[in-house]
Design a protein around this nucleic acid. Structure first.
Lengths: 158, 158
DNA sequence: CTTGAAAAATTTAAGAA
DNA sequence: TTCTTAAATTTTTCAAG
């Protein structure tokens, strides 16, 4: 899909202000509301822009602990990776999961109501491939910068 | 702020479908549109729900590399922490940053157009506190589970 | 919280650049 | 094509009960 300046502007605007009205968006990018809506629809159906999320301020809503977890597998087979991956995905408390290069195999971000519950999840992860999983837990102390979108301007060449 | 079942449902719905119309939201939670809108306004002004973000499918938009970075400071003073934190925040490519307990001090997620640009950012981070910063880079190979919101159901007690 | 009416936004269709 | 205009539909918003 071709991305001109207007579509780029639409993407970066919707990325940070998902609930903007189509009319305001049209004004900002300099299109009529109807052609702006057309563009948005195309970007959505081409899956360049996906679900729209509201960011919750979790500490104000309920007690919770957030933990960043590094995982290494002793068994480096594709099979073992697939098994761990599928199991991790199944836990709703695992809110994020990546496979990475370097000294670890996975990074996970886990959110639980309290440490006792986190510990239980931790045990479940260890049990996926008994004796083959190495986990390090890092409790989040402060969120210095929460994710608020990608820096499209610096990513796309002029 | 007190959270009844209805407000809870509003939060979890807006978390995953930020662009839902107020009318549909009202139907789902069983309120009239006007009282639903009132609740949403209150939740927003109490900052229980914050900015609404569109999730971009970055690989379909432009070339990019994503790197998860662990950081340890040799200088464990509050001053050093503040300095690193402020500098990291200033980089638009640092899309996420946490301070954590355990064997590292910070976790960062960095997104850059390519490895050359990533390397430059890496060097800049090392220069914040010369000789005092220990960085490990982990290039993201696959996103097993992207962040799509918190599991409110499992976090809030019945 | 609900109703109901006025204002605003969305969506569709027809036609011009 | 992609855009704009313009009209029909839907949604939002607000005052009153």
């Amino acid at each position: 899909m071709q991305l001109d300046n207007i579509s780029q502007k639409i993407l970066s605007t919707l990325q940070s202000e998902a609930r903007i009205t189509n009319q305001d968006l049209a004004d900002r990018v300099g299109l009529s509301p109807s052609s702006c809506l057309n563009r948005v629809r195309k970007l959505e159906s081409a899956q360049l822009i996906g679900p729209y999320l509201g960011t919750l301020n979790l500490p104000k809503i309920c007690r919770s602990v957030e933990v960043i977890v590094t995982v290494s597998l002793k068994d480096q087979s594709t099979e073992a990776f697939r098994t761990f991956q599928t199991a991790a995905q199944g836990h709703p408390e695992v809110v994020e999961c990546y496979t990475v290069s370097g000294s670890f195999d996975f990074f996970l971000r886990i959110v639980a109501p309290d440490m006792a519950r986190y510990n239980a999840i931790n045990d479940q992860l260890l049990d996926i491939l008994p004796g083959m999983v190495n986990i390090s837990s890092h409790v989040v102390l402060t969120t210095v910068k929460p994710f608020r979108g990608y820096p499209l301007d610096t990513l796309i060449e002029e």
